Amino acid sequence: MNRVALIAHDARKDELVAWVGRHVERLRRCTMVATGTTGARIKAAFPDLDLTSVKSGPLGGDQQIGAMIAEARLDMLIFFIDPLSPMPHDVDVKALTRLGTLYDLPMALNDATADRIMQGW
């Protein structure tokens, strides 16, 4: 079973929920983890998904996801960032992308790339 992490900045949460909706049948076969608010939004829209929420990103959730990457407990990272907003979480974005790159994890930072990754699964 594939293990997927889902994270979205505030301005991108609606887009990630919509993305999950487009891929919900495939995601039903996955185990998913999401940061706090993102996970709550996805769970509200799709209550039957196998989704575990960790802490909110700025409260440690991004680091929890990072630890899962380092421990090889994830198969894919979908992280919809907002490149036009001030980046108070800039260090978290850099840390997650660094770990995803280091551990050769399929990773998408936008809708188009996330769609491409899902096509290959």
Rank of each mutant, 00 (worst) to 15 (best):
M1C: 11
N2F: 05
R3K: 15
V4W: 01
A5T: 04
L6Y: 07
L6M: 10
I7P: 02
H9A: 03
D10R: 05
D10I: 13
K13D: 11
D14F: 05
D14C: 05
D14I: 12
E15P: 06
W19N: 06
W19V: 09
G21M: 08
H23D: 08
H23L: 08
V24D: 09
E25Q: 14
C30E: 09
C30P: 00
T31D: 14
M32P: 01
T38G: 04
T38D: 03
G39I: 04
A45Y: 07
L49K: 06
T52S: 07
S53I: 05
V54T: 11
K55M: 11
G57M: 06
P58N: 15
G60N: 13
G61Y: 07
Q64V: 13
I69F: 01
E71L: 11
A72I: 06
L74P: 01
D75E: 07
D75Q: 02
L77R: 01
F80Q: 04
D82T: 11
P83A: 15
P83V: 10
L84T: 15
S85N: 13
P86V: 03
P86D: 12
H89A: 13
V91H: 14
L99I: 08
G100Q: 04
G100Y: 00
D104A: 14
D104Y: 00
L105E: 00
M107Y: 01
A108Y: 09
T113D: 09
A114Q: 10
D115E: 14
R116A: 13
M118H: 06
Q119D: 13
W121N: 05
W121V: 15
W121Y: 10
